[in-house]
Design a protein around this nucleic acid. Sequence first.
DNA 1: CGCGCGGTTGAAGAACCTCAATTCGGGTGG
DNA 2: CCACCCGAATTGAGGTTCTTCAACCGCGCG
Lengths: 180, 180
Amino acid sequence: MLRSGWAARFTHVPDGRRQVLSILVPGDIAGAELVIQPSIRVPVQALTDISYCAFDVADLKEIGVEDPSLVWSFLDICTSGRKDTEARLVDLGRRNAEQRLARFIADLHRRLRRHGIADESSMPFPLRQQTIADALGLTQVHVSRVMSSFRESNVLKVIGGRLFIKDMEALLDIAEIYRR
Amino acid sequence: MLRSGWAARFTHVPDGRRQVLSILVPGDIAGAELVIQPSIRVPVQALTDISYCAFDVADLKEIGVEDPSLVWSFLDICTSGRKDTEARLVDLGRRNAEQRLARFIADLHRRLRRHGIADESSMPFPLRQQTIADALGLTQVHVSRVMSSFRESNVLKVIGGRLFIKDMEALLDIAEIYRR
DNA sequence: CGCGCGGTTGAAGAACCTCAATTCGGGTGG
DNA sequence: CCACCCGAATTGAGGTTCTTCAACCGCGCG
């Protein structure tokens, strides 16, 4: 479990490009599948300096015997992880670059706020454009262009490793995220 | 759990288009998340006549108390489901239409063979091109074109609701699936 | 026979990519 | 303190992939 810093789970395709499966921020769990299968399926790369805490799978299984509710918690984590992945699948399948980027940023902001790492309209942002591109199924060049368009239309800007949302309304609008 | 026939799990996007999250064939489980959350998150649509068997979640939880290994089985199902979803994410993010379609068909063939529904080089194929398009993040028109190109290059053909793989080597090659 | 659904085909355009040159910014050594 | 350097971001031009729109075909069914 990541305690501080950012990381990315990713896979390679034969031509050498990467697909980032998920960005990990503090509180997120890497390699939950280790609870079931003893092999690491997906490489995890630290994107900043990080600190984390590791668990011994054997211990967890033992605790699971004493307290079955823990296992149900695992199930919960796992299903919500799948839910996130499926949401990303919809993004890659049916949304254009602008929407993908807006949703990506809105999602990160929501998750960071939940942990008190972001404030209402800004957050730390250590991601390279290449990493974002690998997450959204785009090229770094195109991410740059969309970022520029967001900057020019005063939706958001990135300065010195920090992202400022200047027009949350517009961002959520592009992202097609509707609050009630 | 689907016993016979085909189904699809999908979501809508605001503009009315769909994204198919997964195709279900006999042996697959729809709505595994119900074990955790009482609400249905993802609609499931039958694509053919189907038969299935339903489970009572309350019963399952009860059994889970008596036999904790059942809960671990759920975890297994859930992680492998996520693994599949992430594989599709890589397809949509980093592969072109030809590769996506080849991998889609190769995957279906593998799963159907596992259940004895397909033979070595052919399988039932009740899917509309629109459904395939919704699964692969393409348009029906483009699926038609890629299918035609496969037909013309003698990789596969579809006749009367059945798909025939005429050149498995070529199919797996396009799909970048390497057996050893 | 006609109707409707699914698939095919063509032409034109949009979205995104590739290649390549240039700029920016932060860190390092003189 | 400044000049340089390197990785990352920006910008431009041109190309490819996929989409959109629309017409047409084929086939099963009432």
